[in-house]
């Protein structure tokens, strides 16, 4: 039995399915559990998949958290990832959607020198054109805020850059599923039927001096 090195060790993926990579938004409802963020994120890093955007925050129901994770992958891969996520003990439910199936927004903050803006730019026009609003106006700087898709918030960076953009920050994507009829009601019933447990945090970190230990 003779085989070349390449034959023995290389797998030639001729079987490659025709699936195409695109942007998927994964929505995950979870318990509020310390360490769960790691458990979810390592499902991606184990497969060397880059997370484009990740938002995690309490949902509208106390005790239940909601993740929005954006990745660029094929549907086959996304489907398997979602099943692995759902397998975690503290995960209540996970879904995936294409961009067609969701409404999403990102929020961005722009900090610009007030003097520059006032002198050179027609602030009025900027605000109207980009749907932005001024959050803070001080003598030294002004902070604008806008929400929209990535392209929209990117555009405003370009516009503001000539006026000396000082700092910029963008949030992760938050997305709502177009076909999510009854989600809120189901969550509320779920929580009412069996309230979640309280998170127990480390209460001892600031008590170093009071405790004898070895």
């Amino acid at each position: 039995m003779k085989q070349s090195f390449a034959q023995a060790f290389m797998y030639s993926p001729n079987s490659g399915s025709a699936s195409i990579k695109e942007e998927y938004t994964i929505t995950v409802y979870t318990e509020n559990h310390i360490g769960l963020l790691t458990r979810i994120s390592i499902i991606f890093s184990r497969r060397k998949i880059n997370i484009e955007s990740l938002n995690t925050s309490p949902s509208e129901i106390p005790g239940i958290h909601r993740f929005n994770i954006v990745i660029h992958e094929t549907e086959d891969v996304v489907k398997k990832l979602v099943r692995q996520i759902e397998k975690q003990v503290e995960v209540l439910k996970a879904y995936y959607n294409t961009n067609d199936e969701i409404i999403w927004q990102e929020m961005a903050l722009y900090k610009v020198p007030t003097s520059e803006i006032a002198a050179k730019a027609k602030v009025e026009r900027l605000l109207r054109q980009y749907g932005a609003r001024a959050v803070v106006i001080r003598n030294d700087y002004t902070v604008f805020e806008t929400t929209g898709h990535r392209e929209e918030t990117d555009q405003l960076i370009e516009v503001l850059a000539p006026f000396g953009l000082i700092e910029f920050v963008r949030s992760a994507r938050v997305a709502i599923i177009k076909a999510s009829a009854g989600f809120h009601e189901k969550l509320r019933e779920f929580e009412q039927a069996e309230p979640g447990e309280e998170v127990i945090e480390n209460e001892y970190l600031d008590k170093q001096q009071e405790v004898f230990s070895m």
Binding site: I34, G35, T38, R39, I42, R46, V89, I200, N202, E203, Y204, L205, D206, K207, Q208, V211, S213
Partner: peptide, 30 residues
């Protein structure tokens, strides 16, 4: 001891995170 977590105490290691990918579930009791 819980108050020593994260201080590089003697024989301290982040067991919860080291074992997350190889356990069905894990939990730290303080």
């Amino acid at each position: 001891f819980a108050h020593l977590l994260g201080t590089d105490a003697f024989q301290e290691t982040d067991v919860i995170n080291i074992t997350a990918p190889v356990t069905k579930w894990n939990y730290q009791v303080t």
